[in-house]
Design a protein around this nucleic acid. Sequence first.
DNA 1: GCAGGAGTTTACGTCAACGGAAGTTTCCCG
DNA 2: CGGGAAACTTCCGTTGACGTAAACTCCTGC
Lengths: 151, 151
Amino acid sequence: MSDREQVRIEVAAQRSGLTKRAIRYYEELGLIQPTGRSESGHRLYTAVDIRRLEKIRMLRETVGLSLLEIQQLLEAEAALEEVRERYRRSAGTDERMALLQEAIASVSSQLRLITRKREALAQLQVEYEDRLARLRAALADLASEPAARGA
Amino acid sequence: MSDREQVRIEVAAQRSGLTKRAIRYYEELGLIQPTGRSESGHRLYTAVDIRRLEKIRMLRETVGLSLLEIQQLLEAEAALEEVRERYRRSAGTDERMALLQEAIASVSSQLRLITRKREALAQLQVEYEDRLARLRAALADLASEPAARGA
DNA sequence: GCAGGAGTTTACGTCAACGGAAGTTTCCCG
DNA sequence: CGGGAAACTTCCGTTGACGTAAACTCCTGC
């Protein structure tokens, strides 16, 4: 039953690494909805909620997306879920194929964005690795030949 | 001599994909300094300047760094250049090794940040690729068996 | 030689992403 | 059951990253 554990905002903040203010703000923007509220109106978060908060944080801090981009990404995921539902209920093969193609286009689009970012980072990484390699080579050079040498 | 070409801010903006305002702002923050000014005070940019502007833009828009982070990154590069100079002038092997180790530590630190970001993106990418693969499999499934099937 | 299209500085405006204080209610422990 | 910690809403403040307008100078083609 630990998965059904309900925690208040302070604990949710600690576990997600966000501030209480940020969590409320994200709720205001529609990025997250606490699973429920206590009788007196206190927000209650489950493990699922906290994973979502962690994901938002990762996308924000590590990946560097704006809250708008995160919102669109999460909405796209939700839309995909909805397509799943419609898919189950849809009767015709043509209809199903259309739904799938729509979903594929959406995911592909998100994927392209991610790939572009990764490529930019990869370029940077190579640059820095090169630099590091040269520095290490110079160091090894110095270490192996302690005698005086030309420039 | 096309490398010595000096262009004014409008052209620099077009070539770098930034706005004139952004360029002036970056200068205000110390991210870039135009190679020179015309007699009348107009900023003049060279190809080197424009490459720097493009790099800033890439770090900002694609990688998603803040201007502060970009500033630190560029300053670290400049510091590295300075170490290079000191290195050339330094006499003792011990001194040179110390300089190299300092530089290595600095570059390694930057590299770790980049790697962390890439890993976060890689995780996302895998997630999306999985999803895409499943959608494509479902589509292929449908295409190959147009007859009615169970859920 | 002058109109108007760029350039300059200075300054205020704006939007995102929260921070922080005020005023109030709720929880919980001794 | 009383009081301090924590939650709630509301609102104003702030910082980053520019946009935009004003007031002025500069340069160029006709």
